[in-house]
Each structure stands twice: as structure tokens, then as C-alpha cells.
Write a protein that binds this DNA or RNA. Structure first.
Lengths: 152, 152
DNA sequence: TCCAATTGGTTTCAATATGCAACCGATCGG
DNA sequence: CCGATCGGTTGCATATTGAAACCAATTGGA
């Protein structure tokens, strides 16, 4: 996978994985494209219709997601292309679920309907929560960032 | 908490919690501001220095994060203001961790150093993973979105 | 075989967002 | 009272985004 950015661009913060993730998918559309890909969308037209995104912007985002190894583009039936999630793209599932659960809790009025993510038996997912090595729930106050890890 | 957007703005997708979350924190800076707040930053100057963001943009983002109930702003020692995470802001911890872990796995070359998040005992966090109600690991293929939930 | 629709774009132009640098009022320490 | 700090605001240039028109290649159907 190509982890570099286009020439001339620098990472927002070279050593912070959050900053890198935001550099790759932290715009208005990329994560929603990934969400729709997880929901079964594969063609340019499908993404366009589901998202209502401008066509030139969609072209650009799909290209960048392919460049960054999040989507894979291949010819489908001749006139169609199929964009599919790579392993790195599928691995964004956890982040999408975390944002979804946050949105459910904090971005809807109590009486406002919203879609929910359910497991194979149709039951709503339990709340995702970071844990320490010993299994205790972790928060920003009870964890900390160790600033750099030597290569190796 | 105020969950509405400014007049004239509409949600990207009215019923999707992912879209709502992206509407609130899905830009180049908001999530990094939240990350730094979790790491102890509180004042305008601290955020400015850590992020290297343009001052007018920082003003705008801080104002929006306060509007959306993610940060709380209060006078500190007279000339300083303190921006602190609200409960909704602290609750973004899970999403930030998920993005961080994804970034660690997919946005760094193998030999490239990066910061790591550690628990109270200094041990690296286990990988976060969505589970079903029965405890089995879940992916995009083994889960699905139930399109709307009636109010109530 | 030819026509119209579909698909996946590109181009052009306007509107919006972002960044940089200068400026500013209030506060504080000395 | 002076200079530095803090938290901004303002003006202007540049970059990003969006809407709409256009376009080439493919395809199904008459």
C-alpha cells in the first residue's frame, strides 16, 4: 500500500496516527463513501446517487481513496467499474461504527428517528469501548499518548 | 445540547448517524482539536501552537465545537479562556482511538515511528473491535443497517 | 444496423472555505 | 506606565467545492 501523500503535501502531524487518518479520510465525503461501500455500493453511479455529491468531487475522492489503498477499482462488466474496499478499507469498519454510535448518542434529538446497525440476528450492537490491557474501561484521562516509538 | 445546525444548512443524510457525526467533526481540524483537548490543551494559544492552524479558522472551529456541545468555554484567569471537553466531547474518545488504531496499521510505513496510546500501566491498548450481542466479532459483511427507527 | 440510454467521467465557471499576515483591545507583570 | 501576552478580527489571496453542461465509450432494443 502507498502510504505517502502527493508531492508537496506534508502530514498535519508527522508522528500522530490520528492526524494521518484525518489526512486520508477526514473530509466531508471520504468516510461516507466508505460507509456506502460497506453497505454494498460499488459503482460511480451508485455512490453518486446515494450521496448527492458533485460528480467531479466524487471522481476526485474515489481516485484518492484508490491511491491510498482504501478502495480497489476494477472493470466490472465492460462499461461499469467496481470500487471495492481493500483490507485497509474494510478495517475502517471499527472507526465508522465508533462515529455512528457517537452520532446516535449526541447528534439526534430524543424523538428523532435514525438508522441503527444490527448484528446477524438483527440485534443492535453493544456500545464499543476502549479497554486497557487488564480489561478496565479507558478514557482520555486514564490513558496517555507516548510520544514516539523508535523504528523497528 | 443543541443538535441543530445553523439555519439554511441541512444534514448530509438526515437519518444516518455516521453522516451526522461527519457533519459535526468531519473536517480537517475539529477532530484534531478534540484530540489535543483530550491530551490536555485548554487555551486558544495552546491549540494554535500544537496544531499550526490559522487563527481565524481556529476561532471558527472552537466556536462551532462549543455550539455543538462538544467543547465548553469559560473564563479562566481573566485574560485566558479555558476550552474543556463536555461529556459529548469526552465521548468522542472511542472514535478517536478507533481512527488512531487504523492510522497506526495503515498510514505508516513499517519503519516509520509514531506515537502510541497507552493505558495507566504504560501498556499499549488492545485493538478495538465491534462485537455482536453474542460476543462474536462483527464486520461490514456480517452486520447491516436497519434503515429507520420510529421515534419513541 | 442504428438510436437512445447508461456509465463514468471532464470542463467551465461561480461560490465557499481556508490560510497568511497585519492589526487590535483587554489584561497583566514589572 | 511600558511591553508582552492573550484571544481574537479584518483584508486579501489562494484552494476547494459545487452545479451544470458536455463528452466518449458501451450497450440494449427497435
Amino acid at each position: 500500500m502507498d502510504v505517502t501523500l502527493a508531492a508537496g503535501n506534508a502530514w498535519t502531524d508527522p508522528a500522530c496516527p490520528v492526524a494521518r487518518a484525518v489526512d486520508l479520510v477526514g473530509d466531508r465525503w471520504s468516510l461516507l463513501i466508505v460507509r456506502d461501500a460497506m453497505d454494498g455500493a460499488t459503482t460511480f453511479t451508485e455512490f453518486h446517487q446515494r450521496l448527492g455529491i458533485a460528480r467531479n468531487i466524487l471522481t476526485d475522492r474515489l481516485r484518492k481513496l484508490v491511491e491510498h489503498g482504501i478502495l480497489d477499482r476494477r472493470a466490472a462488466d465492460g462499461r461499469r467499474h467496481a470500487y471495492r474496499l481493500t483490507e485497509a478499507g474494510r478495517d475502517l469498519f471499527t472507526a465508522v461504527v465508533a462515529l455512528r454510535q457517537w452520532g446516535e448518542r449526541h447528534a439526534f434529538a430524543p424523538d428523532e428517528p435514525h438508522s441503527v446497525l444490527v448484528d446477524g440476528q438483527g440485534r443492535e450492537l453493544p456500545r464499543l469501548h476502549p479497554l486497557g490491557q487488564d480489561g478496565t474501561p479507558l478514557s482520555a484521562e486514564t490513558s496517555r499518548v507516548r510520544k514516539i516509538t523508535a523504528p523497528g
